[in-house]
Simulated assay, not measured.
Amino acid sequence: MNLRDLSDAELAATLAVEAGRILKDVRETSGLEGKALGKAGDAAANAYLCEAVRAARPEDGLLSEEEKDDTTRCAMSRVWIVDPVDGTREYGERRSDWAVHVGLAVDGVATTGAVALPGLDDGVVLRSDVVEPLKPAAPNPRFLVSRTRPAKEAVAVAKAMGGELLEMGSAGAKAMAVVRGEAEIYLHSGGQYEWDNCAPVAVAQAYGLHCSRIDGSPLVYNREDTYLPDLLICRPEYADTVLGLVRGS
């Protein structure tokens, strides 16, 4: 397969799936556990993704969590933003709620992406060019929160809306749980970086979900400062209510 011949969306999905395969192989053959496993997996997946992106799209910029940032990307229109292992802790603990993110931002907007969930039995990959109808929402909204640090805004808004809190690992796993109909709202305010949500946002937007900062402003990518501390990904029918409650909290 010549990666250069693939569309952007096909490339994102192909790279996410292959990085997931590499990560599963490292987990199964390295004999490592915990932080050591996470570090080894990150290194292997990052090496593959960075080499593949540069070979397939040599004129584009690249931002990876696991590689020293070259801010010359900020002058480029097209920048690939990747997270080789989103949820390194969960990966190292051999849980299923971790992900691989391959996203493309064009002029600061998350336009194309793929999120692989290799830890699931079906090894699913969600992509911005292959979209299915959203499943019916639950009568009471389900909120996805961190296993260890639930966002105070999410806890407060869920209480106000009579919602249920669901704990889950990586940001990508949470975002894709909304896409997959396993929850309705992912409200996060505990700090993230561009690689944590670029690909998930591209996929979620393609499915028709609401994606923004928690003050309602747009999510902007390929900035010199890659810190992107908060976001809201939710069913569109809940967006105004959630944003209003956050403003009033």
Results as ranks from 00 to 15, higher is better:
G119F: 05
G119A: 08
L120H: 13
L120I: 07
D121Q: 13
D121F: 11
D121K: 14
D121A: 15
G123H: 00
V124F: 06
V124A: 14
V125Q: 08
L126Q: 05
L126C: 04
R127P: 02
S128A: 05
S128N: 09
S128E: 07
D129I: 07
V131M: 06
V131L: 03
V131E: 05
E132T: 15
P133D: 00
P133V: 00
L134T: 12
L134G: 14
L134S: 05
L134K: 00
K135C: 07
K135G: 10
P136Q: 01
A137T: 08
A137M: 03
A137I: 02
P139H: 01
P139G: 01
N140Q: 13
N140F: 11
R142K: 15
R142P: 10
F143H: 08
F143E: 03
F143P: 01
L144S: 11
V145D: 00
V145H: 06
V145L: 02
S146A: 00
S146Q: 07
S146V: 02
S146W: 06
S146P: 07
S146R: 03
S146I: 02
R147K: 15
R147I: 14
T148G: 04
T148F: 15
R149F: 14
R149K: 13
P150E: 03
A151H: 12
K152N: 12
E153W: 08
E153H: 15
E153I: 10
A154E: 05
V155Q: 13
V157I: 10
V157L: 02
V157C: 04
A158Y: 06
K159H: 15
A160M: 15
A160F: 06
A160V: 10
M161N: 02
M161V: 09
G162Q: 11
G162I: 12
G162P: 02
G163Q: 03
G163P: 10
E164G: 10
E164Q: 05
L165F: 03
L166K: 14
L166H: 06
L166I: 15
L166P: 05
E167F: 10
E167W: 07
E167Y: 10
E167S: 14
E167K: 15
M168S: 14
M168C: 05
G169A: 02
G169D: 03
G169K: 00
S170K: 01
S170R: 03
A171L: 13
A171E: 13
G172V: 11
A173G: 14
K174N: 12
A175Q: 13
A175C: 14
A175W: 13
M176N: 00
M176D: 02
A177V: 01
V178E: 05
V178T: 06
V178W: 03
V179H: 08
V179G: 00
V179T: 06
V179M: 00
R180G: 14
R180I: 08
R180L: 15
G181A: 05
G181W: 01
